[in-house]
Nucleic acid binder design. Structure first.
Ligand SMILES: [Mg+2]
Length: 264
DNA sequence: GCGACAG
DNA sequence: ATCTTGTCGC
């Protein structure tokens, strides 16, 4: 199993997180965020190697969701080699570089981000959403499917129900029931955001599914790109599926992007 | 010292 | 996250 990092690397990562956590602030959340960015990735099996193993690759997808039009207005993707193992509490060191590669390819300005993981509801107050928000210097929210640390009650089964998530006595987020009868999401501020603002946004973006649209579309999209050779499935293909054109008469101007190491 | 432990 | 066929239930 994977321990491809030294204890010093782990110690450096811990220190990096503790340092970043000092820079957290809940201020500067936009009043009415319209364009919400989301990103996710899928690990691909390599030549004789299992998906997610050292040297294998992952494909990341970043999308921009327009809350006003209720649709995805842009999608981008990128492939990168996996260079860090999965270690609970160090997820950002594994995923952030890959997610960033896809995010950098977006041209639409994003107001706030939602990421698939925790924000400050983290042992050192610096989960994936916090780390990425700080690297991007933009407001961000973490929407995790399960709890990493802290304690909270089970929210009522109705959609919209919430239960405070506390870690060491501090409010670090909410367990939010985004879909009736389904397990709650663990929502926390990533950067420039309060727990309440984070929960409100995620609930508002979770239209008919458990996951908010930005990360749900990114999750679905990277699964489509997983394992396909560069050229067979293009971003253009995904745009048509995940980004239905209301007018059906216009072109975006960049519809030939291929998801390779450099290509887009 | 013993469990818990995002994706 | 990924490995994987059929199967149980609305
Ligand atoms: Mg994910």
């Amino acid at each position: 199993m994977g321990r491809w990092i030294s204890t010093r690397a782990v110690r450096r990562a811990f220190n990096r997180q503790r340092h970043l956590a000092l820079a957290f602030t809940a201020a500067d959340w936009p009043p009415h965020p319209r364009f919400v960015g989301g990103a996710d990735l899928a690990f691909e099996p390599g030549a004789g190697q299992r998906a997610g193993s050292p040297g294998s690759r992952a494909v990341a997808v970043a999308v921009v969701w327009d809350r006003q039009q209720r649709r995805c207005v842009e999608i981008a993707a990128a492939r990168r080699r996996v260079r860090f193992p999965y270690v609970p509490g160090l997820l950002s060191f594994r995923e952030a570089p890959i997610l960033l590669a896809a995010i950098r390819r977006l041209q639409t300005p994003v107001d706030v981000w939602i990421f698939d993981g925790h924000g400050i509801s983290h042992p050192r107050g610096c989960g994936l959403a916090t780390h990425l928000g700080m690297l991007l210097n933009q407001p961000s929210v973490g929407a995790a499917k399960s709890r990493l640390c802290g304690v909270c009650a089970t929210p009522p089964s109705r959609r919209g129900a919430c239960a405070p998530l506390r870690y060491q006595g501090r409010l670090v987020g909410f367990a939010v029931r985004t879909e009736a009868g389904q397990p709650p999401l663990y929502v926390s501020p990533g950067f420039r955001c309060t727990p309440r603002q984070a929960a409100k946004l995620v609930l508002a973006c979770a239209l008919r599914h458990r996951l908010p649209e930005p990360t749900r579309l990114a999750d679905w999209s990277c699964a489509q790109l997983r394992g396909v050779g560069a050229g067979s499935v293009t971003v253009d293909t995904l745009q048509r599926l995940v980004r239905p054109d209301p007018s059906r008469h216009s072109f975006t101007g960049r519809e030939r992007e291929v998801v390779s190491r450099h290509g887009g």
